[in-house]
Design a protein around this nucleic acid. Sequence first.
DNA 1: ATTACACTTCGATAACTGTCGAATTAATAT
DNA 2: ATATTAATTCGACAGTTATCGAAGTGTAAT
Lengths: 100, 100
Amino acid sequence: MDTQRMAKIFKALSNPNRLELYLKIAEAHEASFQTGCECFVTDIIDRLNIGAPTISHHIKELANAELIITEKKGKFLTCKVNEKLITEVNSILALQNQSK
Amino acid sequence: MDTQRMAKIFKALSNPNRLELYLKIAEAHEASFQTGCECFVTDIIDRLNIGAPTISHHIKELANAELIITEKKGKFLTCKVNEKLITEVNSILALQNQSK
DNA sequence: ATTACACTTCGATAACTGTCGAATTAATAT
DNA sequence: ATATTAATTCGACAGTTATCGAAGTGTAAT
């Protein structure tokens, strides 16, 4: 992985709200905004105190950095971690896990 | 480590030039801008094609994120990786090493 | 058919960022 | 003392970003 790509990943995770959003998605891993875990989006909105347009924007950023993969399922949008990056992402997440 | 702190680290490494600067410092680990490895700053300027003021700015950002520790030695400035973060940083750097 | 829901898109805006050239400071060399 | 060198500070500027409210789209429930 070159520095450009690395920087792009770091940038995608450099906003606290977006990082938290990513962590939630990673936790659920195949969480959707309704299927399985009900009211996911509302939950995020409550926790992060940011509006739906902003969340939509952040999700697009994460997807654009290829950190997550999204799929429209009817009215809902499902997000999952990009498997191809999961080992790298785990390295990053070790940052958090190490202190737990 | 909480998300705020994580995001701060990611942000510091989210600019390609700053990331490359950090990698150079990490490589030399105790590199100074003259001592030991001659003409370090000029080298960086040549490689990164950014001016001295910008480098000064980036170094301050890295130091502010506590990723590096700087020390003024006479006319020169020495930079070294913050040992306290080195394991975490190594996790991040694994991103690059894995593909080598 | 109408309503409700889950987003998305569209401006707009305020704040932040990377970069520069010019001027400045401080240390060293002549 | 003077000149050189290393780095910093100071505006400035163009580009980006996070966020919002309002309006729009498409799906599903009544």
